[in-house]
Amino acid sequence: MKEVFVRLDRCQGCRSCQMACATAKSKSKTLFGAITETPRPGYRIYIERGNGLNVPLTCRHCDPAPCLDACIAGCLYRDEQGLVRRRKDNCVACWTCIMVCPYGVISRGKEPKIAVKCDRCHKLEVPACVQACPTKALVFMEAAAFGAEIRKNAAGVLAQASDLGRKG
C-alpha cells in the first residue's frame, strides 16, 4: 500500500502542499474559488521547522492509531484501505484525538467544530499535497520502494565516504 513519505532534505517551506490540501477539501476544488468559500476550507498538512530542516507533517495513518483508540464517540474509524477517517456526524468535539496524536496533525475545524485530519485524498489517485510539491519532497509510494530509495542513497554516501567507490 502506498503512503505519503517525506524526503526530509527536500522541503523548501513553500507551503504549496497546504494550498493544494485546502483546495482539495473545498467545494469548488479551485484555489480562487476555495478562498472565497464560507467557511474557508482548512488544510491538514503542516510545515514545522525542526533542527534546521523544514518538515512537512501529516497523518501517518498509524496502526494501531492512538487517535482511533482514544476516540470515544465512534467518529474515527479505519476504512477498507487502512486509512484513519472520520464519521463526521459522530464527532463530539472532545479533542481527545488532538491530545494523543504524537504528530499534532489533527486540528479543530472552523465550521462545523469537529476534528479535522488528513484522509489521504482517498478519492484521488495521488494525494493533492504530493501532486503539488514542486521539489518532490512529498512522495506517494510503497514503503518498500521508499526504503529502497533511502538505501540506494545511503549506499552512495557510504561508498563515497570510504573513498573506494568508483568515481562518477
Binding site: C14, R15, S16, Q18, M19, A20, A22, T23, L31, F32, A34, I35, R40, P41, G42, Y43, P134
Partner: peptide, 24 residues
C-alpha cells in the same frame, strides 16, 4: 505557487519572503 497566483507573496525586503495564508 498559490501565494504567487494570489499575489500574497512579498519579497520587497530581506526579511521576506512573507506569505499570507489565504485560508486564515
Amino acid at each position: 505557487c498559490g501565494f504567487g497566483e494570489l499575489g500574497t507573496c512579498c519579497r520587497n525586503c530581506l526579511q521576506g519572503p512573507c506569505r499570507i495564508d489565504p485560508f486564515g
